[in-house]
């Protein structure tokens, strides 16, 4: 019935309808193929990691096995968990990431609000500094920061009191200080994003609050913050995720803590050392086995993030799309 009407309509429109319909179908087919291919490419390493992590070692070298392991085992997880000091390192990662991203978000929100709403001398200069913060790779100042924090001092005050500058290198304080002053990982980007958002909020909202006698801070907390929650939370999420997987700051400032990302980056070497010390020097780990252990480690690292992402992806994507459009 329906097809008949379609052909009927088609005849009346002198073939235009058919042409349009076939074009639509062709486009959606090509689009589907392209998207399927790309999506598959993104997901496939994850799938192969999962299957690899469940295999026994002999399955790795069996060329008839592609994805489904023949001998399922959870032993790999046990080995990796033991070498990366799992419960401790994961908990450390968790509280450090939470603390750091919380500090960063407080600081960057305040700064972004200041940039979006207030006029003050040298504003352009300071904003250029924010851009510089995004552009300058932290590797450039790595060695200098290292030096700053091994001999930490505020204008010589600490030296006056204690007699010598503090060595803060293995404690968490340097990083907390940097986070509280917007110098953490990619903080320039957060400032930029949130400023973009705050600029889009109509100024009359605050003016109304001022007229009714609301103080500056109260206006900020009662009127601006609740509206900005999606952006703030997505920045918080970014901060958390990037901190969770970060290696640069971890390696430089958090050497005193067992953090998961740091453990993960050296898992194979340490396992090899351990084997060498217990079984004799000749013992080494096969290449395939090494790769398997790494993928188990990566999997352990990713799973919490993926779960988190599944719950929050909507706010994340939408709020980002929102901030960008107000260029």
């Amino acid at each position: 019935m329906k097809s008949k009407t379609f052909w009927e309509k088609n005849r009346r429109s002198e073939g235009y309808l058919l042409r349009r319909r076939s074009k639509e179908i062709a486009i959606s087919l090509i689009r589907g193929l392209l998207l399927f291919g790309l999506c598959f490419m993104i997901i496939s390493p994850m799938i192969s990691r999962i299957s690899m992590s469940l295999m026994e070692e002999k399955d790795l070298y069996d060329s008839t096995i592609v994805l489904l392991p023949r001998h399922v085992t959870l032993d790999n997880f046990r080995v990796v968990a033991k070498t990366t000091f799992l419960p401790t390192s994961m908990l450390n990662s968790l509280w450090i990431s939470l603390l750091v991203s919380f500090c960063q978000i407080i600081a960057t929100t305040l700064v972004a609000y200041g940039f979006a709403r207030y006029e003050f001398p040298l504003k352009k200069f300071w904003f250029a500094c924010v851009i510089a913060l995004i552009v300058i790779p932290p590797q450039t100042i790595q060695s200098a920061l290292y030096r700053t924090f091994t001999r930490f001092d505020i204008f010589g005050i600490i030296k006056l009191i204690k007699g010598a500058p503090l060595n803060l290198r293995s404690s968490i304080w340097p990083y907390v200080m940097m986070s509280l002053t917007c110098m953490g990982l990619k903080n320039g980007l957060y400032i930029y994003m949130m400023r973009q958002y705050f600029k889009g909020v109509p100024e009359s909202l605050e003016e109304a609050a001022y007229v009714d006698g609301c103080s500056t801070l109260r206006t900020f907390f009662k009127i601006m913050l609740p509206d900005a929650m999606p952006v703030i939370s997505s920045c918080f999420l970014f901060g958390f995720v990037w901190q969770w997987t970060d290696l640069f700051y971890t390696r430089n400032f958090l050497t005193g803590y067992k953090v998961y990302s740091q453990q993960l980056s050296t898992v194979v070497d340490r396992l090899a050392n351990e084997l060498a010390s217990t079984m004799g020097a000749s013992q080494t780990i096969d290449p395939g086995r090494q790769l398997q252990l790494i993928s188990v480690g990566v999997l352990i690292c990713c799973v919490p993030l993926i779960i988190l992402y599944c719950f929050t992806q909507r706010t994340l994507v939408e709020s980002l799309a929102m901030t960008g459009s107000k260029e």
């Binding site: 600081a107 200041g114 200098a144």
Partner: peptide
């Protein structure tokens, strides 16, 4: 007031970016 808002950034930039640079 605005300068107070961005004060953390100014301090941080001077202490942990400009000086190390």
């Amino acid at each position: 007031i605005g300068t107070l808002f961005i004060l953390p950034f100014i301090i941080g930039f001077l202490a942990f970016m400009a000086r190390p640079l």
